[in-house]
Design a protein around this nucleic acid. Structure first.
Length: 716
RNA sequence: GGUCGCUUAGCUCAGUUGGUUAGAGCGCUUGCAUCACACGCAAGAGGUCACUGGUUCAAAUCCAGUAGCGACCACCA
């Protein structure tokens, strides 16, 4: 028997245990053709990324599911990997170049791309190392990257398939343009931020009969129409008429037309229509055959079309000038303060400048149908259930997807002469099957696909989850996964979004350093109720650390009691009628068929059975917080506070109950501890494995490692 | 504007299909170096379950409404 230190030391344990698992190949699934496998694909973090609290939570969740499945004897695969993250990565490398006084344009495309690859080679595995630190049991031999060779091939095949079917087309239309990133963006890559704005009321010129209202007067240089509500009595006489105006020195023809979408009560009820610089106006212009005049260019500067007075000015400068000219001419009627939403780029937060541009689109109408059906029919189930509606609402109102990007880092569109790359989400949409070898019919693909559970954050339901569903159905004729778990968002203590740049974030690696990976995992699981978003408080992690120590000391108590002399050198904790293993003479054994000898034994065994049941139920239903609570309560309050306290041996080494309710049976105690650490292993893999190793050394357990030990089964 | 979520102890949150004295973590009070653990043990204080009305023998729980907070979607220029 060994002497254990009185406190659990995670720093000396975690890396050692992780190495033990890796050396044993414990993360690789054992393929059994007769069994249905359990598969999770990791939401691939950006190669530029480093672990944040959202990752920590989500990967804890996945590791819990994976580890339990593995212990149940199911062939279990967790595929890891990273995403090339087009714009995000390009921006990171551009920033690095900027520090060296260089731009990507100076380098040229080929050199720049090489720079990015170098960057990826050097830093791309940072987050992978961090996942290992957390204890994630991914099969690293199957690690993928969305730009690795095979994956790039999959992207090409996917594109060609869509193209041949006529789903992909090129078209000139108004798209979301980021003047900083110099690329088109899809509708969902645009974020809306509320802001205070000024609403300017004016006429184009003295002869124009209608006053319009706008927050961006400079765009009005490109107006070719005014839209009013068909029911608006004020403007009936003008509908259908075209007026020649001179607006700030620029001659324009403005046609007044009716459109049902116009709000009579807002502004003057008349909207200046700028087809080139508003998606909505563009649609109205198409319906009504209005001219499209581009007055702002891709850099956010005024074009020649905007007139000689404005050409070359930045949009903000042009705005000031337009306002000044309108005021001088006495055309400005009033200015109101309003709240509106500004569109910004989701990657750089700069305002979006919508403009006409030739782009590639993926037609969504046909693809959306089966993806809607798969969820409606229950083949794919969202947890919590409320996300089903969010998904369906979006899928049923889809516009075509702009898939081309004018950046350099990504999959070049596989058409001769094309220099644009594909939206990074085009490739990540293929993740569940491309990681398994698609388009090749590999053994992995045949066996592990469709995957089982997808766990992810709610903010990528549209960007990623929805697109995996229709892509999976299109390319494999199967759903890519059957369960989607949407985890809560982790906010800081004040309920604000965690942000590195604002310094409002918490670094999970610091928590691991300070409390241990198990404590971090337990704390996050403990507060994950599944319903509410999390206001993260470090105290929960502290509780996790204490709990790991408690587990350690419960084991220590048992080991010190079994086959151990009392303090005065006499006696042992073992009693004559304990169930002893004949192999050594002092190893207690217990199995389900034995009858508990005392009331205390009976009670703890009943409670243990109840917690086995509740853990299975909770994890099946993705109630992670509840699972952690139940296990914590059982171990601390039932096992330690009651069972162990009441069965302590007295100072003379003779086993006597504290409260008279029977004597301790160490075979029962061992059984309860072993079962408890099995149940806790998915949440706290390191400390439980370390305890297991101690038990194994003392021949108290048979299986070599807890990670592959058999999951407990409840008795009916 | 639409949709959804939240409001329970000082703080962060649980509370399964409505059913005895509403729970946990952390914090707080008092006592304790007992040979598993002071990252601990024992005892304890602390709640009109946002508000209003309704259903019921019974409501934190179901229904309606009000207020506040939050998220997402949306073409309010």
């Amino acid at each position: 028997m060994q002497e254990l230190p009185s406190n659990y030391n995670y720093k000396e344990t975690e890396d050692k245990i992780y190495a033990l698992w890796e050396e044993a190949g414990a993360f690789k699934p054992v393929i059994d053709p007769n069994q249905k496998p359990y598969t999770i694909v990791i939401p691939p973090p950006n190669v530029t990324g480093s672990l944040h609290m959202g990752h920590a939570l989500n990967n804890t969740i996945q590791d819990i599911l994976i580890r339990r499945s593995r212990m149940r004897g199911v062939p279990t695969l967790w595929i890891p990997g990273t995403d090339h993250a087009g714009i995000a990565t390009q921006n990171v490398v551009e920033k690095k170049l900027a520090k060296e006084g260089k731009t990507r344009q100076e380098l040229g495309r080929e050199e720049f791309t090489k720079e990015v690859w170098d960057w990826v080679d050097q830093y791309g595995n940072t987050i992978i190392g961090q996942l290992k630190k957390m204890g994630c049991s991914c099969d690293w031999s199957r690690q993928r990257f969305t730009m690795d060779e095979g994956y790039s091939e999959a992207v090409k095949v996917a594109f060609k398939n869509y193209y041949d079917k006529g789903y992909i087309y090129q078209g000139e239309r108004v798209i979301n343009w980021c003047t900083r990133c110099q690329t088109a963006l899809s509708d969902i890559e645009v974020e809306h931020i509320d802001q205070n704005a000024k609403l300017y009321f004016f006429k184009y010129d003295k002869n124009f009969p209608i006053t319009i209202a706008t927050t961006r007067p400079e765009t009005k240089l490109g107006d070719t129409g005014v839209a009013v509500n068909p029911k608006d009595k004020r403007y009936q006489d003008y509908i259908g008429k075209t007026f020649k105006v001179n607006f700030c020195g620029v001659d324009r023809e403005i046609r007044v037309f009716a459109d049902i979408s116009i709000d009579i009560t807002f502004g003057t009820g008349a909207v200046g229509v700028t087809p080139a610089h508003s998606l909505v106006d563009y649609e109205m212009a198409e319906k009504n055959g209005l001219d499209i005049i581009k007055v702002i260019d891709q850099y956010g500067k005024m074009t020649k079309e905007a007139g000689t007075e404005f050409e070359g000015l930045k949009a903000t400068e042009a705005q000031a000038k337009v306002i000044e000219m309108l005021e001088k001419a006495g055309l400005m009627e009033k200015v109101e303060e309003i709240q509106n939403a500004i569109s910004v780029c989701y990657r750089c937060n700069r305002p979006i400048e919508p403009q006409p541009s030739k782009q590639w689109f993926l037609k969504m109408s046909e693809l959306a149908k089966p993806a809607i059906e798969a969820v409606k029919s229950g083949q794919i189930k969202f947890t919590p259930d409320r996300w089903t509606k969010v998904y369906l609402d979006w899928m049923e109102n889809l516009r075509d997807w702009c898939i081309s990007r004018q950046i350099w880092w990504g999959h070049t569109i596989p058409i001769e002469g094309e220099t644009d790359v594909l939206d990074t989400w085009f490739s990540s949409a293929l993740w569940p099957f491309a990681t398994l070898g698609w388009p090749n019919k590999t053994e992995d693909l045949k066996y592990f696909y469709p995957t089982t559970t997808l766990s992810t954050a709610r903010d990528i339901i549209y960007l990623w989850v929805a697109r995996m569903i229709f892509s999976g159905l299109e390319f494999t004729n199967e759903i890519p996964f059957s369960q989607v778990y949407i985890h809560p968002t982790v906010f800081n203590k004040e309920g604000k979004r965690m942000s590195k740049s604002l310094g409002t974030g918490v670094d999970p690696l610091e928590l691991i350093e300070k409390y241990g990976a198990d404590a971090t995992r337990f704390g996050l699981t403990y507060i994950n109720t599944g319903i509410q978003d999390l206001k993260f408080d470090e105290e929960a992690i502290g509780a996790g650390k204490k709990f790991a120590n408690k587990l350690w000391n419960i084991t220590r108590f048992m080991l010190m009691s079994i086959c151990h002399s009392g303090p005065d050198g006499s006696g042992t904790g073992i009693q004559e009628n304990d169930n002893l293993d004949s192999r050594s003479g002092c190893q207690p054994v217990w199995n389900d068929k034995m009858e508990p000898r005392t009331e205390a034994d009976k009670i703890i065994l009943e409670k243990l059975n109840a917690v086995i049941k509740s853990t299975d139920k909770n994890l099946d239903e993705f109630k992670f917080g509840q699972a952690a609570h139940d296990l914590y309560d059982f171990v601390w309050h039932d096992l330690a506070d009651v069972y162990i306290e009441e069965s302590k041996v007295t100072a003379n080494g003779h086993p006597e109950p504290k409260s008279g309710e029977g004597t301790p049976d160490f075979s029962v105690l061992l059984y309860v501890i072993v079962t408890s650490i099995k149940l806790l292993h998915p949440i706290m893999p390191f400390v439980t494995e370390e305890i297991w190793q101690k038990l194994y050394e003392d021949k108290l357990v048979d299986e070599r490692m807890l990670i592959t030990a058999k999951w407990p089964k409840a008795q009916e």
